[in-house]
């Protein structure tokens, strides 16, 4: 009796989450791989197995390569700049002598709670050619020649999208890094100051190696965040324009599926995108590998 109650309880608690997860997450995930090998126009019943043909098309599709380059640009620029800035702020805001630390933390983190749509609309205003503050600011300081339609110019559009992404996530990583830095035992710093190490030296040779593991974990977060996040930013700000100038694999997959009805081809792009993400995660794992320091 006791045993039956226990089993019943375990089943009743585990199954709802498991069924939901299996049906709405695992099944579509697996299905996506299968679909990549079919010629499928979406809602019709007819799906024809065509082997690797979708991938052959993909290989010869110029837009895929353009999108990949754009993707890689964002995957490089956004994490590097965000990490640099958030690490700098975290280092500054854990110094003892800075006033108003809490206020800075609160303010810098705020963009992170805003919806990506809100941020995208907001920055579209900032970049707006007629009433945007960016162009007006440049005119104000005498740099008229720099003004342009930031989102309409294919040479600046990716930077114009990268910046709001960075603006949003700096606070998030800053908070994570601050917690990591504060987790370093203070007596280690005391020893270092006695040895006469400057603040900068202390950070470089003491703090940074000690929080390296946290930094590594955040790299994987970045990869996923940029893949998922860039889609919403681009969709609202430029809709992949001008002339595919801000096309990334995700937006291309989306338009192939929902605008052109090429569901099979869309999933081939999706699989390609996933392979690249996993590949990058493994590469960054390898590159950042060094003996972790314990304390």
């Amino acid at each position: 009796m006791k045993h039956r109650e226990r089993n019943l309880f375990i089943t009743a608690c585990t199954l709802p989450a498991l069924i939901l997860f299996a049906v709405f997450a695992l099944y579509p995930f697996g299905k996506a791989f299968v679909m990549a090998f079919y010629d499928w126009s979406g809602l019709s019943e007819h799906a024809r197995y065509i082997g690797l043909n979708n991938f052959k098309t993909l290989w010869q599709d110029d837009i895929v390569w353009k999108a990949l380059v754009n993707n890689l640009f964002l995957l490089l620029v956004v994490p590097v700049l965000t990490m640099g800035a958030s690490m700098l702020f975290a280092a500054l805001l854990t110094q003892r002598k800075i006033k108003g630390k809490k206020l800075y933390r609160t303010v810098f983190f705020f963009p992170n709670v805003l919806s990506i749509v809100v941020i995208s609309v907001l920055w579209s205003f900032v970049y707006h050619p007629t009433f945007g503050i960016l162009n007006s600011f440049l005119e104000l300081i005498g740099l008229e020649s720099w003004t342009r339609a930031w989102l309409g110019d294919s040479s600046t559009v990716l930077w114009a999208i990268a910046f709001p992404m960075i603006w949003q996530s700096i606070g998030y990583y800053m908070i994570i890094y601050i917690a990591a830095i504060e987790g370093v035992p203070t007596d280690m710093y005391e020893a270092a100051s006695i040895d006469g190490a400057s603040a900068f030296r202390q950070f470089r040779s003491l703090t940074f190696p000690l929080i390296w593991n946290v930094v590594r974990v955040t790299i994987v977060f970045f990869l996923i965040g940029v893949f998922n996040g860039s889609f919403a930013f681009i969709k609202v700000m430029t809709n992949a324009g001008p002339n595919h100038g801000s096309e990334v694999l995700m937006t291309y997959m989306y338009s192939q599926a929902f605008n052109n009805g090429n569901f099979g081809y869309a999933m081939a792009i999706g699989v390609f995108m996933l392979l690249i993400t996993v590949g990058l995660a493994l590469i960054s794992e390898k590159l950042t590998e060094r003996d972790s320091v314990e304390y």
Partner: peptide, 26 residues
Amino acid sequence: VIKRFYIAGLFFPAAFSIVPLFMLLN
């Protein structure tokens, strides 16, 4: 096994399965 699935789920890019999910919901 179940634990492993959920941990993997933490790292699924949501966008990847949006098309099959669309068809399933349909």
